[in-house]
Nucleic acid binder design. Structure first.
Lengths: 127, 127
DNA sequence: CGCCTGTCTTGACATCCGTCGAATCAGACA
DNA sequence: TGTCTGATTCGACGGATGTCAAGACAGGCG
C-alpha cells in the first residue's frame, strides 16, 4: 500500500455520524453501524482499553509512549501497533515533540460512543 | 461436548466489575479491562451492533430471531453465531418460547459500558 | 559527523473471526 | 409417530488480528 505520508485514514465521526441517538431507542442505521463499530472494535482488546484509559486519564491530557510501553509485558512494536489501531479508529491523536511522541484522547468520539450506549432512566421502559 | 443444557459461560459483570468509573477519570484496572473488553469487542462488528440495537429497541423489549435474520443478507447460522457472541459477552439473554427464540438486552452491562466511556462536562478538563 | 535512544514499519507466524453449507436439535401439529 | 419449520451446532475456508524480531526512521548530543 502507498500510505506513506498520508495523514492516516482516520474515521471522520464528526462529519458522518449526526451523533447517534441511543442504541436502545431506535435501530442504528447501517451507515452508523459501519462507522462506529470499528471504534468499539478498537476498544475490544484489553491492552487497547487500558491504553485508551491511560491516555484519557493522563495528567495533562496526553501520555508519552515512553510511559505507556513499560506498563505492559509487550514489546515496543506491539504497543505501537495497538496505538495505531486506536489512532485509525479516531479514538486518539498523536503528536511528536522532539524525541518523544505524545498521544491524546479525542473526547468527541468517546461521547458519541457513550451516547449510543446510554439507557433512559427507565430500565424496563414500558413494561 | 456436553454443553447441551449448560447456561453458557456468560461473563458475570455484576459481580466482577464494581461498575467502573469513567475511563478518562482513572486508569482502568487490568481485571476490569479483561472483563469489559470482550463486551466492546462484541459490539465491534457492524452486524452485531445492529442486532444489539434491534434487540434493545424492540417493542416489547425482546426480539425474535425470526425477525432478526431476514434483516440481513446473511444466512441463519451466521446470525445465530453473532447472537451467540452477544450472549457470551453478556449483552443479551435468550429465551425459547415454543417454536421461537427471543432475545432480550441486558441494560445493566450497557449502562456499565456507557459509564466507562462517559466524559465529565469539562471536555479538556483541567486544561 | 557519528552514535545513541525512542518510535515506527516490515515481514513472518500462529491464532482468531466471519461466513457458509450440511447436519443436528427442539417444538408444533397432523 | 412422522414430518415440517425454526434455530443452533459442526466443519471448513479465506481473511483479519496480535505478537515478535529485525530493520528503518527521527531527533538529541557527544
Amino acid at each position: 500500500m502507498s500510505k506513506q505520508q498520508a495523514p492516516l485514514p482516520v474515521v471522520n465521526l464528526n462529519a458522518d455520524a449526526p451523533c447517534c441517538p441511543p442504541l436502545a431507542q431506535r435501530r442504528v442505521p447501517v451507515e452508523t453501524a459501519a462507522v462506529l463499530a470499528p471504534a468499539f472494535k478498537a476498544l475490544g482488546d484489553p491492552v487497547r482499553l487500558q491504553l485508551m484509559s491511560m491516555i484519557a486519564s493522563a495528567e495533562d491530557g496526553e501520555a508519552c509512549v515512553c510511559d505507556l510501553t513499560p506498563a505492559f509485558d509487550l514489546t515496543g512494536p506491539t504497543i505501537s501497533h495497538h496505538l495505531k489501531t486506536l489512532r485509525e479508529a479516531g479514538l486518539v491523536d498523536a503528536e511528536r515533540r522532539g524525541t518523544w511522541v505524545y498521544y491524546r484522547a479525542r473526547p468527541q468520539i468517546l461521547r458519541q460512543l457513550a451516547a449510543l450506549l446510554s439507557i433512559e432512566s427507565t430500565p424496563a421502559s414500558r413494561a
